[in-house]
């Protein structure tokens, strides 16, 4: 099989040595990167620092008061729009103590289901699960032809420090304008602590490029279509919705689809209620939809083309309270008759 002459063996030995050397150096680098990743946790991208802090808190903290929990415990799942748009403290003060809420928005996470399961597995007991994005129509099941649903999660497992290089470059690029590397590192650390203190709310300052964190009034983005409605698609069947329904039943919570938000120039005004979604959820007693698919705000309330600034978050939280307060009219968190 393998060339047995002297030259062949020499070449074989050299090649094996060369490949072993490559692997050995790669292992050393792996350890080096892992060490940086774990020892310098605030070298990461601002939003990743927040995700890590939240995940840590989900695993070891108390999302809701463990001694005297409020009758209505709201866990709001979603991506960075939730993170930067929902202020739990404000929401709870508007409810005058009837709610205790937590912002579980995680940047880049459209699939909230694993996070919901993580929260429930950690022993947190929400009574209301708020969502701005619907669940997918279907989920991946392994087969002989397709073994994995996606490679990215597996790569992240094998190389947990995968974002390190990109984050470090971004960190070093921003550090001079933030008072230097050390000051910026401390700033990131404080951001994480503040997010936990703010019950998961975080203003994504790193993406805000305009003065006063306000998007200019004349700002347009190529993907804007103010003449088009951007309806939310809500699958009424499929494995994911069944999984959520099962969890809702087991853990006694209700799933509430609440309005998302858009810039006024981004999409046209939606109908006050999405009738299609309403029909899709008609036979689901633990599912609700409140308000329109999204609320439109002027550019001045955005810090970048996607996320709200603190004024915008204030407004959105108040609007959310307006459309959801009827859910908390009694004190038990149970559905109104």
């Amino acid at each position: 099989m393998i060339g047995a002459d002297a030259g062949g063996w020499t070449l074989a030995r050299q090649s094996v040595r060369s490949m072993s050397l490559f692997l050995a150096i790669a292992v050393v680098f792996w350890l080096f990167f892992w060490l940086i990743w774990t020892e310098l946790p605030f070298l990461r991208n601002g939003t990743r620092v927040i995700v890590d802090a939240k995940r840590e808190f989900i695993a070891h903290g108390h999302l809701f008061d463990s001694i005297k929990p409020a009758p209505n415990r709201v866990a709001f799942f979603g991506h960075s729009r939730v993170l930067s748009g929902f202020i739990p403290d404000l929401f709870d003060s508007l409810s005058q103590g009837r709610t205790e809420s937590y912002n579980l928005g995680m940047p880049g996470e459209a699939a909230f289901l694993p996070r919901l399961e993580e929260v429930l597995a950690a022993g947190h007991r929400p009574t209301h699960v708020f969502l701005i994005l619907a669940w997918p129509a279907d989920e991946f099941t392994p087969s002989i032809w397709r073994w994995f649903g996606g490679d990215q999660p597996l790569i992240e497992k094998a190389f947990p420090f995968q974002p390190l290089a990109r984050d470090a470059i971004a960190f070093l690029a921003r550090a001079p304008s933030q008072g230097g590397i050390r000051a910026f590192y401390r700033h990131s650390q404080k951001s994480a602590e503040k997010t936990i203190a703010d019950r998961g709310y975080y203003f994504i300052e790193s993406q805000s490029l305009f003065s006063d964190h306000r998007l200019p009034e004349n700002y347009n983005h190529p993907s804007d279509h103010p003449d088009r409605i951007d309806p939310r698609e809500v699958p009424s069947k499929g494995a994911p919705i069944e999984r959520i329904a099962r969890l809702a039943q087991e853990h006694h919570f209700r799933v509430i689809l609440v309005p998302n938000y858009r810039r006024e120039k981004q999409a046209g005004p939606p109908p006050s209620v999405n009738e299609k979604t309403l029909a899709a959820l008609r036979d689901r007693p633990l599912f609700d939809i409140v308000g329109p698919d999204y609320i439109r705000y002027p550019n001045a309330l955005f810090s970048d083309r996607v996320h709200l600034n603190p004024d915008g978050a204030d407004r959105y939280t108040r609007d959310l309270w307006e459309v959801t307060q009827h859910l908390f009219s009694n004190s038990t968190g149970e559905r109104d008759p």
Partner: peptide
């Protein structure tokens, strides 16, 4: 035969 230079 398995050619190691080709593998490399």
């Amino acid at each position: 035969q398995l050619d190691f230079s080709a593998v490399r």
